[in-house]
Design a protein around this nucleic acid. Sequence first.
DNA 1: AGCCAGGGTCTAA
DNA 2: TTAGACCATGGC
Length: 209
Amino acid sequence: MLTAREIYERLLAAYGQPGWWSDDPYRVMVQSVLVQNTAWPSVLRVTQAAEASLAPERILAMTPEALKELIRPCGFCTRKAETIRRLTQWYAGYGFDVKRTQACGQAQLRRELLAVKGVGAETADVILVYALHKPSFVVDAYTRRLLRRLGFAPDDDDDVRSFFEAELAPDARLYGWYHWLILTHSIERCRKTPVCGACPFYDVCQRNR
DNA sequence: AGCCAGGGTCTAA
DNA sequence: TTAGACCATGGC
């Protein structure tokens, strides 16, 4: 089994400098909800079309029905509209101020985010890492699948999270990059060319046995 | 045409 | 406590 560092090194060598979700914290919050069980292009289409409305004050000013219509193409629009509203209200408690929000401890922020109905572990961790720059490793379907293919069979997501966090420095930038690389690997390579000799994990991938 | 997509909540056993 | 139903829509 590769270590967390070895996996990162291979991803970096294969895909180069990783990207970042967004430098706009509120955009990360909205998109992290919209992408729940939804393909990314749908999220992009909605958020680009709604560019002018994508400020927390504007969202809270909309009627629930208008917000629902705005995000309809992403699916689950009733629930996601409610979640976005609740999340925005949570952010309002910090005056829509990232710095004020970041002043809180990571554990407290994670608890508060998980307490927002409609926000689960993955959404909370995406917001922690990309919007608030707190090192909470993001475990998503791709992360689970990659580790499984590398021969690691965790009982639950907490085990996956500790696999990474136990070995890596608690660095939000690193975690964000790491998640981004797993994403790139999963979408750009694994999905389009399922079995591929150029895969950075070809030698250890369970699928090749 | 049917299946899946970067999830989360609620419920029945 | 856990597996399964449910939530909605678009893309392939």
